[in-house]
Amino acid sequence: MIPAAFEYHRPKDLEGVLSVLVEHGDDARVLAGGHSLIPMMKLRMADVEHLIDLQDVAGMSGIAVDGGSVRIGAMTTQNDIITSDALAGAAPIMHEAALQIADPQVRYMGTVGGNVANGDPGNDMPGLMQCLDATFTLVGPDGERTVAAREFYEAAYMTDRDDAEVLTAVSFAAQAGGYAYEKQKRKIGDYATAAAAVLLTKEGGVCTSASIAMTNLSDTPIWSEAAGAALAGTSVDDAAISAAVGAMLGDIDPTEDNRGPIEFKRHAASVVLGRAIARAWSRA
């Protein structure tokens, strides 16, 4: 649990970050809250010769709710999310999910940007971002671009982010309707055995739209378009929930680990999704 030697950089602005990234390529990594990267370095599973601490970089944190849109700076902590009244109104699912991430000590340090950018299939925010249809802002030497969360994840720890880019913010539309983030885990601080993010809208007893994403059930988060489609136009009765669960099961691809065998994970995924849909519907 002793990391190899590394160079520590602490730039004051994004230009300083980018210059280190450009110079050292994939030998350099940015450090946000450090809850994934530091353990990987201590286990010597991540070989980072240049560590760029983002905490002094101005303008990278904060929650802005402007009319119908929400923008969250990458260095915003999970605790900031939990304590933001504006966000509680614009996207209460963020609040519900953040409370299920680790423990208060971790949430004081862990950031939204680190959580979404690292590409760890166990992290909760990537699936949530896909459910919200968020876009990520990436800044690199060639300027700024945005990418949809649903297009961002390629494989475990592999994303669309270029080595020289920094993820600076996430943005999504404020949500109306029902929501739920349901997570089964072995203990506080654990990754999900299975987790489901559900957003849906209701008009006159009928579901008009639904978005469903699953966490830690594949090597990337899984936004199940088919599962959402199975709810749309229904009254979200047992048959519709079964159809959505069935569709979701067609999209996930869990692996066996200490949380259990594949068969159990598929069962747990079904249960948490069913419960998430029911709770979201009750709130819609």
């Binding site: 072995r186 055995t193 949380r259 259990g260 065998p261 159990f264 069962h267 747990a268």
Partner: peptide, 16 residues
Amino acid sequence: HDHWRIWKTANELGLH
């Protein structure tokens, strides 16, 4: 008696 082993017990007893 972690989650998946309890689930397995229930499963083998036909409770699912």
